[in-house]
Design a protein around this nucleic acid. Structure first.
Lengths: 204, 204, 204, 204
DNA sequence: GATGAATGAGTTTTCATTCAT
DNA sequence: CATGAATGAAAACTCATTCAT
């Protein structure tokens, strides 16, 4: 079924070409005409690959998140200490590089859709992302425990960490002049003081 | 002379009449025609009391939040222990009563606007709300310190508590089957074990 | 019937109060609400004195033109030579004083109504104005003839003079950087060279 | 592939189909819905070819004026004497054929727009038209001079002729029972008596 | 398969006019 | 008489989606 593969690929190609529209215009301002033009194809053609506009937006967001996930997995590999790895989960909300801000603002637009529409597909997808990070964090913590860095009860803090991160994300998205970095550092360092098996102090 | 109308009051009345539209339809689906019909007045009349559609929505949200703030202040008065009072801040995200869910879903719709539009008024208003709760929490904690319930350093945890609450809110808004209650209880109880001046244990 | 006089007077008062609206906003932008507010009365009251919006505008224009006619009659009295008097008819299109520009632009707005609507009242009124100036000009010329300044056939040039003035008006209204003064001077001086009974040359 | 449409042509086609609306309804009464219906297309389609309502009206007027200019150039070719050619410039204001009245009334509507809106495009376009006729007239007069029909100073009367014609136009547009023909004949014949190099009298 | 022309429902906003008080 | 609250028709413009070529 090589045709199907091609279809899937073209879907991605179109979404990829339009990947910047989401933070350049904001989700609500994206039009199908815009998408077609940006991807260099006809409006009708778009409908050959996507069911409707929602579907297009969904795919564009997909691209963003997939890209972010990949970056995440790549960059966490190089980190050694558990504390650093955990801290890396907060990179999303702290890093103000242009690259990361694109993802952050893309996610912001995405959230506004998840909150207002009750699109099941979006909600499902959001869950998938949450599970991804939850699992990654559990893995990191578990490794920390296995390697004797962390106390066994540490695994209970996964959920709190993720909730805390979401809180930072939401505050950064909605408040002017909110600086998550310091709060984040405090929180993690305080937490690690509680759950780390001390061998010698080392803050992030 | 025609009946003299208290413009400010009628504004509230209209918004009040439409207060349910926000979670029945979702903010984006609200039309001026809908508002007029729901309030039992003409479309033109709506524009006698509101500058534009944004303004209507803003007032409706205002109603919700004002009501919630009042409820909050009223109900926190009866609480005695600091722990209970702090826990009360999480009532918003935990209470599944119809009344509270209306507020919660209203706020959800509101957030989606804050995230997608960059409406300055909305953002300002959001800040005002944040400041309100931040101040209330600080007051509660400070009283706890003054009354010898909490250790002085407790005041530093205000920010974290609020971030955590926002995280729960966001997760409850976007995830199916997310139950904030247990996580919340754990978090608060764990925290209070650290900051409470022990006189005898008392969980919420 | 003192009441009727009062009504007529109030009509004028309202129109007078709003007389600046016509060039401040342009006729099309004038609203009844605006008129009521400017006159310091209620919207309903306006309809006690005017049949409809057209009627209001009509009265405002009336005020302008009446004022202009009075000014015209007053200022032409002081002029001695027929040539000066004739030239005075062109003052409307040449004088760039703020006062006169108000009248000129008011008349411009008025014309746009006469041209687009086929409001009979407006057209009749326009005719009345034309007749006024035509008669004034005829009077001036006739006096010139009677006093031996002009040749008897001069009376035939009335119409042409008025047509010429209208042409200047229209061109000034529609063309950027059109300067009627020079053209006007040339025209009149040339004409007077033909119709004046020479006693010694005197240009305006 | 869908049929490729000559956008510029279709623009003209739509405007052409609606070309009568301008004097049937008057410019101010034209609505986009009306235009769509008259052209036998959908409202949305109109916006595929025109930026906004102004743009539509502009094109309709364009059609009228373009057609008139062409007719003008065509018909002036057959005329021999300079006097006849000059007289031809006044055809617009004298000819009461249905065809010409359409143009005349179209121009009337157009003027009302130029006078009330301060639309730059309209004003520019008006200038272009004025320049067109001014140049044509200069050409005619110059040819007359070159051929020994007219005295060299005749060229100075161009401006006055055009002003005079505008005056006739405005009077015909705004006054009931105004008959420009006689006035016009007088004016031109008188003028030509002054500027023509006599070889034998020949009125128009 | 690709295209882009055509569509029209749907939305916001304005404002002359009426009429109950 | 005066008032201004209430009204709703009317108008411009957008855009997801369809479908003939």
């Amino acid at each position: 079924m090589p045709k199907i593969v091609d279809k899937e690929q073209k879907r991605k190609d179109i979404a990829l070409a339009c990947s910047d529209l989401i933070h350049d215009l904001g989700i609500k301002k994206i039009t199908v005409a815009q998408v077609a033009k940006t991807a260099g194809i006809g409006k009708g053609t778009v409908y050959g690959y996507f069911e409707n506009k929602e579907d297009i937006i969904f795919e564009i967001i997909n691209i963003h998140i997939e890209k972010y996930h990949n970056n995440f997995l790549k960059s966490i590999k190089d980190l050694k200490s558990t504390r650093e790895k955990v801290f890396h989960f907060f990179n999303f909300v702290i890093d103000n590089s242009e690259e990361n801000l694109k993802h952050f603002n893309g996610y912001k637009e995405y959230l506004s859709i998840v909150l207002s529409d009750n699109d099941e597909k979006m909600i499902d997808f959001n869950d998938t992302c949450n599970v991804f990070f939850h699992n990654q964090l559990k893995k990191v913590i578990q490794e920390g425990i296995d390697e004797g860095d962390l106390m066994p009860k540490s695994i209970d803090f996964c959920e709190s960490l993720i909730v805390f991160e979401k809180g930072l994300v939401l505050k950064k998205m909605t408040e002017v002049d909110f600086n998550p970095e310091e709060i984040c550092l405090n929180f993690i360092n305080n937490l690690f003081d509680l759950i780390e098996i001390k061998k010698g102090k080392k803050n992030v």
